[in-house]
């Protein structure tokens, strides 16, 4: 029963990921695509979390951390680059 609920949850999350993918393809502006990619990064963290419960292992916890940080950094650099054309601002 418990495993069934988890598998249904995984399927629902996969559908959500497909929806986000639609937005990446049709998104009128580049910012739309960044937004959808950011959301995909966040949802993948949840996906791995459910996998951890299902397989009863905590080895993926490092991956969760790295994915969170990398998703954030990627979003920041992309939007900063689009804003001014540079990633690192210098005050001078």
């Amino acid at each position: 029963m418990f495993d069934t609920v988890m598998i249904i949850a995984l399927s629902a999350l996969s559908i959500a990921l497909v929806l986000l993918f639609i937005r990446i393809i049709i998104g009128p502006s580049t910012q739309d695509r960044i937004l959808a990619l950011d959301a995909i990064g966040v949802l993948l963290v949840g996906f791995i979390g459910i996998l951890m419960i299902l397989q009863d292992t905590s080895v993926f916890s490092d991956i969760v951390l790295v994915l969170t940080i990398l998703g954030f950094v990627g979003t920041l650099t992309l939007s900063k680059f689009l804003e001014r054309g540079v990633v690192i601002d210098r005050d001078d």
Binding site: A12, L13, I15, A16, L17, L19, L20, A39, L43, G46
Partner: peptide, 11 residues
């Protein structure tokens, strides 16, 4: 999962 799916629909 409900909130995650709603956010995907919203996007």
């Amino acid at each position: 999962v409900f909130f995650a799916v709603v956010s995907a629909i919203g996007i």
